[in-house]
Amino acid sequence: MFAFTEASETRIEKILAKYPESRKVSALLPLLTLAQDQEGYITPEAMIEIGKRLDVSPAYVESVCTFYTMYYTKPVGKYVVKFCINISCHLNGCDNLMEYTARKLGIKEGETTPDKKFTLLKEECLAACCEAPVMQVNNKYHVNMTPEKVDQVLESCK
């Protein structure tokens, strides 16, 4: 079963107030984000609940959800480590950095560590090209990355 927490409900009220009453489906992405923040990923139950709230079918919710890459429909680690692999980062050695991190975590890109702590992902341009290479851990940017800085950041993940 999925239910929004009380804190989420407060947020939902604020979110819905942003859009015209007859266009509440505009709140779909924010509500998916909220569900993911709450559960770590988006479950079918959450999709059903969100569909009910916004008066759209759960199929529709799933269709929108799977269009956007920031939504996970399967469980991920506590920390999602994403490396930008686009051109500016590519020119600045993101490949090696990613490989380094993968070795360090003992997993391949797309995988989660057995202790469910880290998931390693490739990401397309994160809009921090002048500070390449860029890494994001959950929602936080880490820029001008080096292997040493990767070590530091991963260590700070408790």
Partner: peptide
């Protein structure tokens, strides 16, 4: 809205909920 497109790009496919 029972039949929808899931995923995007060349991964997209016709699907139903779950």
């Amino acid at each position: 809205q029972a039949l929808v497109m899931r995923n995007r790009g060349f991964q997209n496919r016709v699907s139903t909920f779950n």
